[in-house]
Every structure is written in structure tokens, then in C-alpha cells.
Design a protein around this nucleic acid. Sequence first.
DNA 1: GCCTAGGTCCCGTCC
DNA 2: GGACGGGGCCTAGGC
Lengths: 259, 259
Amino acid sequence: MAKVIVYEEPSLEEAKKIVKNALSRKKNIYILANCSVDYFGRSSSHLEFGERLIIIKSDGALLIHRPVGHSPVNWQPETSYIDVSYDSEEEVLVMKALRTRPREVVAIKLDNIFLIVEAELYDSGAFYMHISEKEIRDILATNPEILGEKLTTIDVEKKVEPGFIDLYLKDKKGNVVVVEIKRLTARVDAVRQLKKYINSLKSHMRTEKIRGIIVAPSITKKAQELLLKEKLEFKQINIEALSKYVGKTEKRSLFDYLK
Amino acid sequence: MAKVIVYEEPSLEEAKKIVKNALSRKKNIYILANCSVDYFGRSSSHLEFGERLIIIKSDGALLIHRPVGHSPVNWQPETSYIDVSYDSEEEVLVMKALRTRPREVVAIKLDNIFLIVEAELYDSGAFYMHISEKEIRDILATNPEILGEKLTTIDVEKKVEPGFIDLYLKDKKGNVVVVEIKRLTARVDAVRQLKKYINSLKSHMRTEKIRGIIVAPSITKKAQELLLKEKLEFKQINIEALSKYVGKTEKRSLFDYLK
DNA sequence: GCCTAGGTCCCGTCC
DNA sequence: GGACGGGGCCTAGGC
């Protein structure tokens, strides 16, 4: 079971020892403190002093969260090294998280620490994500009749020069059918993507006719227009209906959660 | 200054009161607990029981973080309502975070709570991000001579059918110059993007010559090849050197941070 | 390592 | 509100 140690209002010198020790033991560290943050790397940024939550995970992931908003204001997805030192001149605890590739640094200056929590967490729970684009693709590959006509699957994730074709099929007339799948509303960029693949195929073989189909639960107006202009097709699919093809997908509905 | 209250190992019934109260006062809430998570909405997922950090921010943002990794395993960027109840049958505290658009729900079941921290944080610190693509574009628009020749800026973010041209200029010979800017290494997709804009322009006006320039600190080999094939140009810029055109950008280098 | 594409992407911006 | 493109996107998968 989790081991959790709480330090309330440590001095900066005490905090330095606590954090260094916790880092060396690869604990999870959560700090509530008044701090400023500088970032330098692919871009650079400066965040003035304010009260935030600093998270250092056992694998070195670093996150700095403000009191509002989903996204961390600063972060380091993986750190090669976190340096902790006390700057007696500025009277701040300095934590520098380094990353080698890309070469980036996040430097945090803490001048008032409210809380440090050191935690050893056990988490081996499996995570299941249902109906990803990959799942839809595999269902359609084995059941191409879902698209409403007789089709034969030739290839899945077929490599062409500019990328990968989700589904590469042939229709009953022997035409090549290129399918681009979107799990959510298809937008103009999906149509562009499909056109790109078709252009690539056309440059290699000139004899056969090539059809392009966007498969998605819905499509934006602009995407529909571009589709018509490019003489491509759209096939609407019902994602919920597809779930019956997946054994392990749970049949719970939003309604069950809201009850 | 921050007000922080720490509750160590509360019972589930106590936790229910603490969380409900903190939610109603729009506090930041941090919970260390053994929990399972179900998500249903644009996609759906199930996470088995394990020890994690649950963050509820004062604006309703919800994050569930495992002990490793940058990204939260489950989240709700904004919640319209968080319901907290005790399920006496399963002996778990249930927190359901609802979102109306898109209609989504994250349901957390907690069966063992190690720590709850309730915090009122004050954070008004400004955040400065330096040299975005937009900034580079504006600097080049007002100082096109940086590109190494006499150019006149005609338009910024010019709308053409497939999108927006970063910079639309004329050179001293009166040729149209289309510039695509990348803040980091330019890749093949940047070249494709540029080509797309030029094609669009060509279809509208046939008299003038159109040049295309990729402006970036560096370019990949593949992009360079495509560039040559398409008879387009690459102009290297030094982002550091551009910063002198931005008043508020700090002149600190990576070296200063690493010292 | 680079490249490609997906994501419950999130987020800003413009219509 | 929908739609579209950017991001220090992050992450997974190929080569």
C-alpha cells in the first residue's frame, strides 16, 4: 500500500534535503509553493511568481500546474537530471530539470513552500481504451461489407510515399478503393490526406481507376465541398453499431453513467 | 497567501464531506487514493484500481495522474458538475465529473484514500512565451530585409483556398513571393503546404512568376529534396538573432541556465 | 535517430 | 456555436 509522507511548511533548506532525498529514492513528489518558472529549449518562456502545484513523478516527469486549466503551464516529459540547490543571494530554492533530447531545461525558483508530499504509489492497473481508429480500421478490414457494397480487403495501413493508407480495397468492378477513416467528424484535412494518397497511387499506376472514400460518423460542410470537387466519396458509419464487432468492448452507455 | 488544509487517511464518509465542501467553495483539491476510473464520451475507457493522484482545480478541470508519465491517464478539461456520493454496496466513494459539450463523463471510484489536500492558491503571475511562429511572422513582415534581399510585404496571413499564406511579398523584380515559416526544423509537410498555396495562386493568376520560400532555422533532408524538385527556396533564419526585434524577449541563453 | 499519424488531444481564433 | 490550424504538443509504431 502507498507510503505517504507529508511535510507542512518546510524551510527552503529543509525542503532541499527532502526533495533531494525523495528524488534519489525515485518517489513521487508533490509540492505546493510560490514559485517562478523559466523554460528554455525548442521555445522559451517565463512565468512570474505565483502559487502552484509542482509534480515530479518517479520516472522524472515534471509538471507545473496553475490553480486553473487542464494543461500544465510548464513541464518536462522526461528528465535526465533534476538539480536542486539553494540560492542564498535570491533566497530561493532552485530546481532545474534537464532533458538531453531535445536539449531543454525547466528552472523553478521557489521562495515559499506550503507543502511537500512524498509518495510511493503502487499502480499496476490495466488501462483499456475502446474503439480507437485502429479498432475501427480492423473491424472494417475484416467486415468491409459494412461500407455497403461488396469489397475485398487488399491491405491495411498500406505504405505509400507520403504516408499510410488506412484501408486499401478493391470493389466488385476491380477498382482500387482507398479508405481514410476518422473516428470523429471528418474535416478538410482528412480529405486532403485522402487526396494525397490517391495522387501518390496515381503516379505509380495509370491503368486502374482509383476511388477514395472518407469513412467517419460525420463530415464538416467544407470537407463535403472539397470531397465533391475532388470526386471523392463519404460513407457515414455509426461507431456505436461497430462496437458489436469488438468482443471486449463494454456495452455500457452514457445513460448508465448518468443514472 | 495560500491556505492549505491537509487531511490524512480520511474515511470515505469523511472524504465525501471534505470534497463536497471544498467543491462548493471552489478550492483546489488534490487526492491521493486507490481508485478505478471509467470514461465515456468521444471515446471510452476503463482503468483498473491503482494508486493515483486526482486533481480537481478551482475551475473544475479534473486530472488523474498515474505515478509515471507526462500525460494524465484520464481527465476532463472542464466540468459542468461533479457529483460525489458514497456507494455503500461497493464500499467506494464515487465522483462523477460531467461535461456537457462534448457530452462526456469521468467516473472515479475510490476505495482507499491516503490524503486529501484542500488549497486556496493565489496565482496572478504573467506567463510570457517567447518567439512564437506568429511573432516570427510579424517580425519578418515589418523587416523583410532579414530574408537577405529587397522585398515588399503585401499581405500577412493571406487567405487562399486551401488555407493561409504566412507572408505574401513581392521581390524587386515584381515577382510574387510566398513564404511559409516554421519555428523549428521544416519538414516535408511544410514544403507540401507551400506548394499547395502556390498551386492555388497559380490557378487564379497566370501572368506573374511565383516564388516560394521556406523560412526556418533548419530543414530536414527529405524536405530539402522535395524543395529542389519543386524549384522552391529555403532561407535559414536564426531565431536567437530575431529576438532582438521583440522588446520583451529576454536575452538569456541555454548556457545561463545550465551554469 | 527520423518520419508519420492519432489523440477523449487542448487551445486560440475566426466565421 | 462549429470549424480549422498550431503546439515546447505527447505518444505509439516503423524503419
